[in-house]
Every structure is written in C-alpha cells, then in structure tokens.
Design a protein around this nucleic acid. Structure first.
Length: 203
DNA sequence: AGCACGATTAACT
DNA sequence: GTTAATCGTGCTC
C-alpha cells in the first residue's frame, strides 16, 4: 500500500487505552537516510498516570519521565535491562503522564534492512518484542522526545486501513507483560492489545 | 555512595 | 523451563 496520511496530534491526545487499541493495524514508519522502513502495529500496551503502579510515572516527574508529562504525539524512548531500548508514544493531555508501549509489528517495507539487523533469527521473531523493534528500526535514546507529528519527523504513524476499522473479533486483550513486582489491580489490568495478524494485508 | 531491580532477549538444558 | 547479559534509574542510608 502506498504512503497514507500521518496520524495527527489529536489522535494521541486521548485516553491511553483507547489510543493503544486504535493503534493496532496502523503503520509505524521510520525514515533513515531518506529510505522508508515500516511495519503494521500488531501489539501495544497502555501505561497511564502516576496512579498506575506499572507505569514509570509512578515515580512522579523525574528526568526519565519528563517526556511523558509533555505534549502528546512525541516519542518516549527508554533504556532497560542494561541493553535494550523501548519505543513508546506519549498520549493524553499535556501534564498528565501516559504512554503507549509498542510491543509488536509486522514488517512491510525495508524488510531486507530489518532482516540484516535481526540476522540469525527467523522472520517471525524479527519484530515480535519491544526491544527487537528498536533494534530492527535503529531507534535509540537519541530519539527520546522527538515529535512524531512534525513535518520532518523520522518516526511517525500512518493510517493504513482508511476505510475500515479493526473489528473487535480480530483483537485480543490481556494483562501487560513483565510487571512481576507490580501490585494489583495494575498487574492484571487488561491493557495489552494484540491484533490477529492474519487480517494484515500483504503488499 | 551503595543497592536492588527492571514495560527484555537469546541461548541454553 | 532456566539463566546470563549489563547499566540507568530511583530509593535508602
């Protein structure tokens, strides 16, 4: 499919859970040296506010969480486990800290570059985790805070199914991953969204 | 200043 | 199923 309109800031400036759900099926695009890498979003998680004990913003406003308190439509990129980068999208109103974590995509453009960066792994495992996406798309902390809605943005989200919404029967929901020491109800709240990849159109 | 742990991954057994 | 890799962050002393 040819390039589509980018999602505007108003898309991100809404309830975190709504945005996480509606990002399924949209396309993540990365511009590198003028070349497009892209993939359909198939898995997201919502992290919402200081009350959410699974969200980094539970620590309040710190150097790390500052971007989440800023305007929506920006990238929140953080480092964890001593080696991995994670890409999130800042959402909700400025001043309310919240973000959507990108956990899975299905590559559709720049596949040969993605394959090279994920060399040694089968194609099903190229971008099926948050750190794998950042490795495949060459996304690091240098991109923390960039505006996805700016004209010159090197990362943004595109519409991909302009005439049809993703139907609920193609979406599964569950608890967020990796929150081992987070108390309830936050540990089990169903804020993880997965798209049935069989409905993704091929190029 | 020191410490425990993390929104993970890959390579093991 | 288990575990090492590896270091920034936030909390405690």
């Amino acid at each position: 499919m040819s390039p589509q309109p980018r999602l505007p800031r108003m898309f991100f400036q809404r309830n975190t859970v709504t945005v996480a759900r509606e990002l399924l099926g949209k396309r993540l695009v990365r511009i590198e040296h003028g070349k497009r890498l892209a993939g359909y979003i198939v898995e997201t998680e919502a992290y919402r506010g200081e009350e959410d004990m699974g969200c980094h913003a539970r620590a309040g406003l710190t150097p790390r969480t500052r971007v989440m308190y800023g305007p929506s439509g920006h990238a929140y990129v953080y480092f964890t486990y001593g080696m991995h980068w994670m890409l999130n999208f800042v959402v909700e109103q400025e001043g309310f800290p919240a973000a959507v974590l990108l956990r899975g995509i299905q590559p559709c453009e720049g596949v040969e570059i993605i394959a090279e960066r994920r060399k040694g792994q089968p194609s099903k495992r190229w971008t099926d985790g948050p750190a794998k996406i950042c490795q495949a798309f060459n996304i690091t902390g240098e991109m923390n805070g960039i505006d996805l809605c700016a004209e010159e943005a090197e990362i943004f989200i595109e519409n991909s199914f302009p005439h049809e919404m993703i139907h609920a029967k193609h979406v599964s929901v569950g608890p967020r991953v990796g929150l081992f020491t987070v108390p309830e109800p936050w540990k089990s709240i169903p804020w993880r969204f997965m798209l049935d990849e069989k409905i993704i159109e091929s190029e």
